[in-house]
Design a protein around this nucleic acid. Sequence first.
DNA 1: CGGTGCGTTGATGTTGCTCAAAGGATGTGG
DNA 2: CCACATCCTTTGAGCAACATCAACGCACCG
Lengths: 239, 239
Amino acid sequence: MDVPKTTCNHEKKQTASCVKIVPIFNTLSEGEMKKVESHAQARQYKKGEILFFDGDIIDQLMIIHRGKLKQSHLLESGEEHVYRILSVGDFIGEYAIFEESKSEGLVEALEETEICVIPREEIQLLVAEYPVIALKLLKELSHRLKSTENLVNLLQMQNIDQRVATVLLQLLKNTSVEGEMIVTLEIRKGDLASYLGITPESLSRKLSSFQREGWIHLKGQREIHIKNKDALLQIAGGE
Amino acid sequence: MDVPKTTCNHEKKQTASCVKIVPIFNTLSEGEMKKVESHAQARQYKKGEILFFDGDIIDQLMIIHRGKLKQSHLLESGEEHVYRILSVGDFIGEYAIFEESKSEGLVEALEETEICVIPREEIQLLVAEYPVIALKLLKELSHRLKSTENLVNLLQMQNIDQRVATVLLQLLKNTSVEGEMIVTLEIRKGDLASYLGITPESLSRKLSSFQREGWIHLKGQREIHIKNKDALLQIAGGE
DNA sequence: CGGTGCGTTGATGTTGCTCAAAGGATGTGG
DNA sequence: CCACATCCTTTGAGCAACATCAACGCACCG
C-alpha cells in the first residue's frame, strides 16, 4: 500500500525544473542537481484528490512543485482538523528518510498540483552522498517546527477574537505584498475555521463583527482588506 | 546578551557523561564522542531559574543532561502558554546551527537541571565533520514536529472532555511503565491546564468529574490512576 | 505559627457551539 | 448559455459549556 490512493494518478516523465525550484536542493551544483533529478519522479493530482489517507504507509519524500496541499487529522466523529497548508517548495514524508512511517492524517490536493517523488532508498543515498541536503532539510524542519509552535500558541488562546485577529495579522505578514493591507485567502473559510479550532459559523460571525467595527472589509469570498491593523494588534494581545 | 540570564549560574568543568547520555551523539565512536565532549560545557540551574526570556539571543545548542525544562509563550496579558516539557536527552537551540536566532518564549527550569552547551561555531564544525550528527538531529526534529502536531490536534478539539481524556491517555502511554495504569504528572496541574489551552479551574473540575464517574482516581497531587481506559478512549473520540 | 503558592469548589455570566434555514457562489449537463 | 444541483457561507435563536471572580482548603517552608 505504498502507492498513493488517487482516483486519477498521472505519471509524468518530465521532471524538468522539478528539482531546481525546491529550496532543499537549489544550492546544489548543476551536476549534483542532475543526479538528484535522475532519482526524482513527477506526479500530478487534480483538485480534491486524496494523496494519502490516515495510516497509509509513506516511504518517499514528496516535494510540491506546483499547486497546494492540505494536511488534516480526521476524527471518528467526522470532524476534520486542518493543521497545515503546503505550497510550492514544501514537502512531506521527511520521516521516510529514516524508517517506513505512516501518514498521520489526510493529505488532499486543494488545486491542480504537481509533486516530486523521491523513493526512500534513493533519498538515503542522496543524503549520504551530499550531506548538505541533510542540513537543508534540517533548516526546513526547524522552520516548520517554529510555525507549528506558533499555531499551538494561537490555539491556546481562550477567546476567539484573539485567534481570528492573530491569524489575520499572520496572513497579512506572510501572504501579502509589501505594505499591501490585503489578505487573500488560499483556502476556504471553513478550513480556516478548522485550523483555528473553531466552527465555520463562529469565524463568519467574528469576521462580520470585525467588519462592523470597521477593522476590516470583506471583499468577495477570499479577500480581506485590513482597515485598522492597530485595532487587530490590540485584540491579538501579546506575542 | 548571549549569556543565559540566571540568578545563579554555576559553570562546571566536569562534562563527563554529558555527551554519552544524549541520543544525538550516542552512536558516535568512543573517539568521536571524546572530540564532541571537548567542545561541550556543562551548566547547572536550580528549580525556578529562567534560562531564557522571550527574545533573548540563542547561539548555542543545549542538551538536557539531567532535570526538566519548561518552554512557554508569555502574553502581554500575563497569561502563560506552556507548549513543551523537556526531559533528559531533549535539546533546544537547534536553530542556532544555521544562524543566530532569538528565543521564542520563556525557558525555565522545573527542577535542578544540568545541560550541555555547545557553541554555534563548534556545533557547525562538528556537523561538518560528522554528517551523522545532522541525521540524528533530523530524526529528533521529526519526532518533535510530530508531537507538536499532536498537540495541535488536541487543541483543535472543541470540548474539554476530549482534550483531558486524550492527554491522560497520551501521558499513560509516554510516562508509565508497561501495563501500569498510573499517570505521574511531572508538572503542576496549572501548567498542564495551560498546555491544554484551558483554565486550571476547568481542568480541576473535569478531573473531579472523571473521578466521580469512576474513570480515574486522583491520588495526591501528582498521581492519577486510570480505572477505565476504555471510557477515556471513547470520550477522546477519533484519532 | 503565619505566610505563600497551588488546587479545589461554588456562583454567575458570557462565549461560542448546535441546529436550522436561507443566501451566494460555483460547476455541470442539457 | 441557461437551469439546476451542490457546496460553501452567512445569519438567527437557544442553550450548554467554559471562563471569570471569589473564597476556602491544603501542603510546604521559613
